[in-house]
Amino acid sequence: MDTLSDMNRGPNTALVVLSFLQADCRSSEYREELLSLGQIINNKSCIQSFDDGGFETDGHLPSKVSLSDIHPSVELLGLRNPVEAEAIQEIAGELRHIGDLLEHNVVARATQNLSRNILDSSPEHWKNHLTREVERVMREGVGLEHLPQERVIMALTLTLVKRVCEQTPSLLRILFNTTIQYIMALRAR
């Protein structure tokens, strides 16, 4: 799994997103929401039917994955293929690094805009708000033109989602699903 486009196959997208969101969890309420989401994924009951082609619509994951197994410095022990587990951690780590660089430049304002927009609308519009905010930030420039833009967009997206969920943990599950749909739509472009 060398590219982000490889990440978009099967449940890997959800695992990378979950790994990204889990890192450096500061709030106990946010941590509880992440654990709950991980348990739901573990029970194979929350993967909704995505018509985007990347997820199996029956919610089947190839193996049991526990949120407690998803840490930046620990392999995803629940995956059968250790190379794939390591690749998921590596991608999430690279995206977190880019997200850290973005944080200094633009994330605070973009998080505030996204949070305000999603709180003022219904969940079916959240993907549009996320798309518009990521595109606005990318148009204005983030100062990371030396990095692959696909990764910058992905890191920006996940960083914004994480910051909104840290502020309002109750949005995690719906925003997680919205993020997966958004990533799948990016892949389709």
Rank of each mutant, 00 (worst) to 15 (best):
S66L: 11
D120E: 11
N177Y: 11
E124P: 02
E94C: 04
S45H: 14
L171K: 02
L186Q: 12
V134C: 03
G141M: 05
I41A: 08
I88K: 04
A188E: 07
M138H: 06
A188H: 09
I70F: 04
E140N: 08
A92G: 05
S36V: 07
S36G: 10
N105V: 15
P123N: 11
A110E: 06
L147V: 01
C25T: 00
T57Q: 01
S66W: 06
L34Y: 01
F20G: 00
Q167A: 06
N177L: 14
T168Y: 06
E75D: 12
L119T: 04
V16M: 08
R80S: 08
L4H: 00
L37E: 13
N42M: 10
V17P: 00
L95G: 00
E32G: 12
R96Q: 02
E135C: 14
N105H: 15
D6I: 13
L37W: 13
E145A: 07
I41F: 13
E84H: 10
S19W: 06
F20P: 01
Q39N: 15
H97Y: 10
T178N: 08
H71Q: 13
E145Y: 00
D120P: 00
S115V: 13
H129R: 13
V16L: 09
D51N: 12
A23C: 11
P62M: 14
M1T: 12
V106T: 05
M7N: 12
V74Q: 05
D58I: 07
K127R: 02
Q149S: 07
E33P: 09
H129K: 14
H71C: 11
W126V: 04
V134R: 02
G53S: 09
E124N: 02
F50T: 13
R189L: 10
E86G: 09
D69T: 03
E75P: 05
D58F: 10
R31L: 09
E56N: 12
R139I: 05
